[in-house]
């Protein structure tokens, strides 16, 4: 009886937390939506949380046309970056995993440092590198910089996913005669499916939201979605309803990706705990 009560209490507490978090999360989304549907006069004259008196799609329509090219550019950058950094990261992770007993600790610490370095610390050399390659203000330039910055993070995540793969699969392959390249391709990679998807989604969202790197590596606002959104601030007085609309549209792709792929993301996260089911 007592145990049942405490279970109920915990369920109640959990539900409360979920509701509070949900509300906190939904408020900005709601205000984005409300703001995008208001006219400029209304958005400036009413509280952010009040619903639009006469909803209008005008701002959204105007902004989506303007956002089209930056979104295409951003997709052209972040999709290859997420793909390549995840694959590079998984290969690096496999190499680390195989030498876990010897070098692991130092390398893991280096990767962790690389992951948590603030942009500002590496930005100057990174800009120099990109400029040196003649890639300043180009899509490949931004992509390369993002790749350099996010690959360690992908490797770090993949190390965690790879560690969840039982070692005996790799040992069985060694006894079967397989070298490291083949073990990685034929045994490890197929077992990493959920980990790869999770890492890719994570990098996609991180890069999509990145602002600083494209800012430093391009002129104008057309090459990256976050820059474009930023461009609605300021110019000749802020167009708040258009800024709201731009933010709303700009945050849709990561949201859609997450909703569509969330299942795999969760599956990947579960691999942390359970290991791979045989």
């Amino acid at each position: 009886m007592l145990r049942y009560r405490s279970f109920e209490l915990r369920l109640l507490a959990a539900s409360l937390i979920i509701i509070v978090v949900g509300v906190l999360w939904i408020i900005p989304m709601y205000s984005l939506l409300a703001g995008s549907l208001k006219s400029l006069a209304e958005v400036q004259g009413t509280p952010v949380l009040s619903p639009p008196a006469r909803p209008s799609l005008e701002a959204v329509r105007k902004v989506s046309l303007e956002l089209r090219d930056p979104i295409i550019n951003t997709v052209l950058i972040v999709v290859p970056v997420a793909l390549v950094s995840t694959l590079l990261g998984s290969a690096a992770a496999y190499a680390i995993y195989r030498r876990m007993d010897r070098v692991s600790d130092t390398i893991m610490i280096l990767i962790a440092i690389a992951t948590y370095i603030p942009y500002h610390a590496i930005l100057v050399p990174l800009i120099n590198l990109i400029k040196g390659l003649g890639l300043y203000d180009t899509l490949p330039g931004i992509a390369l910089a993002l790749l350099v910055y996010y690959t360690p993070m992908a490797a770090l995540l993949m190390v965690i996913f790879i560690s969840a793969i039982p070692r005996f699969y790799i040992e069985a392959a060694m006894v079967d005669g397989a070298g490291d390249g083949r073990i990685y391709r034929r045994v490890v990679l197929p077992l990493l499916g959920p980990g790869i998807t999770s890492t890719m989604i994570f990098i996609l969202i991180m890069t999509w939201n990145n602002f600083f790197i494209p800012l430093m590596l391009s002129r104008g606002y057309e090459k990256y979605i976050t820059l474009k959104i930023f461009s609605y601030v300021g110019q000749s007085g802020t167009l708040y309803n258009e800024m709201f609309a731009a933010s709303l549209i700009g945050s849709l792709p990561p949201l859609i990706i997450f909703l569509a792929m969330g299942r795999y993301f969760i599956k990947g996260l579960q691999a942390f705990g359970g290991g791979v089911k045989g």
Partner: peptide, 9 residues
């Protein structure tokens, strides 16, 4: 191997 370690994929 003790748990056979067949490649699940």
């Amino acid at each position: 191997f003790q748990n056979w370690a067949l490649y699940p994929n």
